[in-house]
């Protein structure tokens, strides 16, 4: 172990953007998602929530994590693992989101939906 100050990276020092300004933008985006959540139109709520989440993620990864100036291995690595997530979703989602198919039926899920959608007053009758 070393006992004196060393630069954390052997490369040239990176350019530091105005981090406080980035943080202020992130906070404004948080307020936008909160305002969106008050809408009675579901598509507005979802676009505000996930559009803002994706924008915030972009701002954090590029400005705070400096992925944009990182070696190309890093975005490749992240992309591969994100692709695994998409493959998982695409492969499993049809069976999970639907509760019946050609030769199968998920009766437990159907029952859960039916009992969950009943008004509270009729649930225990």
């Amino acid at each position: 172990m070393i006992s004196e100050a060393q630069p954390m990276i052997s490369e040239a020092h990176i350019h530091h953007p105005n981090y406080v300004k980035i943080w202020a933008i992130l906070v404004v985006l948080l307020m936008v998602s909160l305002l969106g959540s008050m809408s009675s139109i579901r598509s507005v709520v979802l676009i505000a929530a996930f559009g803002v989440a994706l924008t915030k993620t972009y701002l954090v990864t590029t400005n705070f994590m400096h992925v944009n100036v990182e070696k190309r291995w890093v975005p490749y690595l992240m992309g591969i693992f994100l692709a695994f997530m998409v493959i998982l979703f695409a492969a499993v989602a049809p069976d999970v989101m639907k509760h019946s198919g050609l030769r199968w039926s998920n009766d437990a899920a159907k029952h859960a939906v039916e009992s969950g959608m009943q008004p509270a007053s009729t649930k225990h009758e």
Partner: peptide
Amino acid sequence: GGLLATYVMHNLGHPE
């Protein structure tokens, strides 16, 4: 990612 993807697919199949 696996947990969130699983949550999303279950959520879409369970409106309750």
